[in-house]
Amino acid sequence: MNFFHRFASPREFFRIAGYTVPWLGGATLILIVVGLYLGLFVAPADYQQGESYRIIFIHVPAAWMSLFVYMSMAGAAAVGLIWKIKLAHVIAMSSAPIGASFTLLALITGSLWGKPMWGTWWVWDARLTSELILLFLYLGIMALYAAFEERRSGQQAAGILAVVGVINIPIIHYSVQWWNTLHQGATVTKFSAPSIHLSMLIPLLIMAAAFMLFYAATVLARARWEVLDQERRSTWVNEYLEQL
């Protein structure tokens, strides 16, 4: 618990995150290079979809991250609301634009994949519509946070919206089972063996890990400056500004 209290102190967070970000960034870069090499050069073409399936290495990690970032954001917001931990609110609000960008990427790459495979850019089916609602949730949370003059009220209001919006997450995940859809069902996260070949599964998982580390790096980078802004009246920020 001691570690968490130390890490949750703004000053320690600013310091520790400062030297963690470059390491996470470096690891992300390595994983992206390896993932792209295996995905674009080593993995064979798909027997049904040809080369077009290679969009999977962007689309699926982006879609997974759109859900994962949402859960971290809502979890952090809940911690902030319940235990009144300032840093948790900062992490939650810093996650929103990142999650929104991943959601947009999932929607656009889905569209770019849908056009050649389904013959349409978009259908109003359950999977696509619930993912679009996710984008609007992220944007609503960001707008609500920005709408308050006082930061704390904004964090609380947007945090509550984030927690309530969690209801959309299982709807997105199970949409392909609950409703008829053009979207294919799960090929990786099902209980029997994944119905995707290893030569495609490995780069997919590497790209997913890369996106995960990228989120960690960029949420810490955003949160650092948010913390510095929030603590601008404190001595340590003054000391930090002195030595610039």
Binding site: S52, I55, I108, L112
Partner: peptide
């Protein structure tokens, strides 16, 4: 394999 526009737009995005 003819899907250049779709694949490379995705990677570009």
């Amino acid at each position: 394999g003819g899907y250049a526009v779709y694949v490379w737009s995705s990677y570009g995005m």
